[in-house]
Nucleic acid binder design. Structure first.
Lengths: 212, 212
DNA sequence: TAGTGTGAATGGATTCACAGCC
DNA sequence: GGCTGTGAATCCATTCACACTA
């Protein structure tokens, strides 16, 4: 089965469209034009139409897009029309903050397991999700299979990240969100998305100096 | 003065090169080829050479790049050859985790002030940086001027983010790293970089479904 | 030989321009 | 009149190919 080569940037923007649509829905707006979406997201109207056109025809000429219907469509495209079980490795500061983040659940991602390597932390329940307690990393494989987990978040120090990644991939995880400041080496069938705080700040400092 | 139009993706990769170079330095490697960097980062050697060429000639034909010298050069390019004072708005879970992150300091970003709107939090010292205590958002303008702060991190709920952003820009902040899941509207001379956890997970779920 | 730097060619993504529909 | 959907044109980033150097 041969999908029609969707540009990666278009998929990235799809998430933004969804976010904006959800916000419009909350403010009781039921119809939106590509122009209006573009203004809100600082993108051109054409680009939004083009992006959506990769996936089908969702709008009504002269009217625009139905907010509810388009929301549903984009959720289906992104695969968030269902709930994903997610596991977290690393129960340090960042890991705990992530586990407390409500935005995940709201988007259909449910945190179902947390792992750490530190024996002192094992067995402790999460402050925000008392039904979960921290498990040793050795149990990753078992839990992934038991709970049919496909997505994982890595929030461990750089030195441990590749090793954790290997464990996750071996266990059958299909996508990894990596917060460790290293470039993970994984099987090409596994999706990886990375967030490096320092990289973001460096981008800002570059731009600030350039603007100065 | 008119800089020579650097592609944004090239600048993004520069941060990755720096990260890798720092790692090579720690493992006592003093010379590196574009091929080797490319393998580590899953990029082509040509692309790396092209990216670096936007900023000058740093390599030695037949030899490669001097790790130390290139590190210094890239730091200068990114503007991280000096220390940046950074402020943080939002002392919730995420904000506290960010304030505890050591990677910032290591890269030359020093957290010098933390703000929150919740009266219950005002005055409390940071667990990890006891010399700093949480201040009311109303004081942002004063502190920015006093401490000559140019970069800010927003870690407040979506509803408050635009308002905080306005305060920051009015106070003279030049770059914002935004963790709130909304698209900020700021003066075009202010740089913004955004991290949206949900967006990242959605990208993963899309890819996982596509790979399936 | 091993490796950089770079003009030229390619490949992708964005924007333009407009036909068609409400 | 307002707005979508889309081929064609443009623009920009990546890759190729190779001259050149240590």
């Amino acid at each position: 089965m041969k999908a029609a080569a969707i540009p990666a940037p278009a998929v990235r923007r799809l998430s933004l469209y969804l976010r904006e649509l959800e916000s419009l829905w909350r403010s009781d707006q039921r119809t939106v034009s590509s122009k209006q979406l573009g203004d809100a997201l600082k993108l051109t109207a054409t680009q939004i139409r083009k992006d959506l056109a990769y996936f089908g025809q969702f709008g009504q000429p002269g009217i625009g897009y139905d907010v509810g219907a388009l929301t549903t469509k984009i959720r289906r495209i992104l695969g968030t029309d269902r709930t994903w079980s997610v596991l977290l490795v690393g129960a340090g500061n960042l890991g705990m903050a992530l586990s407390a983040y409500r935005g995940f659940a709201r988007k259909g991602f449910r945190l179902v397991a947390v792992f750490d390597q530190d024996p002192a932390k094992i067995g402790k329940p999460l402050p925000t999700i008392p039904s979960l307690s921290i498990q040793p990393v050795q149990e990753i494989a078992t839990v992934v299979r038991e709970k049919d987990i496909r997505l994982a978040i890595i929030a461990v120090p750089a030195e441990a990240a590749q090793e954790v990644s290997d464990l996750l991939v071996a266990a059958g995880v299909r996508g990894i969100l990596n917060f460790a400041p290293i470039s993970l080496h994984v099987d090409p069938t596994v999706a990886v998305s990375a967030v490096d705080l320092a990289v973001h700040l460096e981008q800002l400092s570059f731009q600030v100096v350039a603007n100065a």
